[in-house]
């Protein structure tokens, strides 16, 4: 077990650069705790005893591979938690928070999150990072949206051409963003060209690629899946309204409130945000997939 931990620690550090050694506490500090930057000493108390910590997050953090880096790093800082990741849409993640089935959430659906906090389901909510949405579509681009900077104008052209568009229609953060974009464009998408998948981002991208349709995706999932999405390209990018903010929320009814607080403190610490999150994906895609929130 321990040997495995050292090995994966080594692998991760080789892959992601020397700063990580510090960030994750590899350098012989395997068992020592005190989350980097967080300053909590909780790690020392639970030696030998582990408690479950349920993290509900969105499919985008899972599909992009970010959690494959974050969770092992968190576990090295806080070995007393057995972290269980539930990757669902933001809608279900918030629901899991309401019922107390998750301890801490990492979600990106600001409006729904504010309702969640207002209803008293959350204890603390902090910004973590953002990534951006992109409108992707077939290389042939039958609706002619390539290079447009205004996502509303792009959607208007897609609707005008009745070009195939796949919507997730799944109460995810991406879906609520898509709906907001249609609203801002003054359009109500209906018709045979506007199809719902009811599935996660990865599956919806696959369907769009296979069927030669358009969709709204977060950049992270698109880049992570690009190899399997031949014929699908980024067409519209860069507008402020295409930004996608992620917040970490500790659940009020959490079964593991200490773990939830530790996770929040850890993930919002500058060293994790800038060291781990801000550099994730650079090596593989030449650009970061997530940009740390200011502060």
């Amino acid at each position: 077990m321990r040997r495995l931990g050292v090995l994966s620690c080594l692998l991760v550090s080789v892959g992601l650069g020397p700063w990580l050694v510090f960030a994750t506490g590899c350098n012989g500090r395997m068992d020592s705790a005190g989350g980097p930057g967080g300053g909590t000493a909780a790690g020392e108390s639970g030696a030998g005893k582990t408690s479950d910590l349920v993290v509900a997050s969105t499919t985008s953090t899972q599909d992009s591979g970010l959690f494959d880096v974050l969770i092992p790093a968190f576990n090295r800082a806080f070995p007393q938690y057995l972290v269980k990741v539930v990757a669902v849409g933001s809608g279900e993640a918030l629901k899991l928070g309401e019922t107390g089935d998750a301890d801490v959430l990492l979600v990106h659906s600001p409006q729904a999150e504010e309702v969640f906090m207002a209803n008293g389901f959350g204890a603390d909510r902090q910004p973590v990072m953002y990534n951006d949405f992109v409108i992707v579509g077939p290389e042939s681009d039958s609706a002619g949206i390539r290079g447009l900077t205004d996502p509303g104008a792009a959607l208007a052209r897609i609707a005008g051409q009745r070009a195939l568009f796949f919507t997730r229609n799944d109460a995810s953060g991406t879906y609520s963003k898509e709906q907001a974009l249609w609203r801002q464009a003054g359009l109500t998408p209906t018709g045979d060209w506007y199809r719902s998948t009811g599935q996660g981002m990865g599956e919806t991208l696959t369907i769009a690629a296979q069927k030669g349709g358009y969709t709204l995706s977060d950049r992270a999932t698109f880049l992570a899946k690009r190899k399997a999405l031949s014929g699908l390209v980024i067409l519209v990018v860069g507008a402020e309204e295409l930004r996608n903010y992620y917040h970490v929320i500790t659940v009020n009814q959490a079964r593991n409130p200490q773990g939830a607080r530790d996770f929040l403190t850890w993930i919002t610490s500058p060293i994790v945000r800038h060291g781990l999150i801000g550099t994730f994906g650079v090596e593989k895609y030449g650009e970061p997939l997530f940009i740390p929130a200011a502060g």
Binding site: G91, K95, A171, S172, R195, T197, Q199, E203
Partner: peptide, 29 residues
């Protein structure tokens, strides 16, 4: 799920089945 895609258009079902729709709906809460 993989070959059907659980697709629908404006509340009309295209390729959803009870099992895939259940999965998608639970995902949405």
């Amino acid at each position: 799920m993989m070959v059907g895609g659980n697709l629908s258009v404006a509340g009309h079902n295209l390729t959803g089945t009870m099992t895939t729709a259940t999965m998608a709906l639970v995902r949405q809460g």
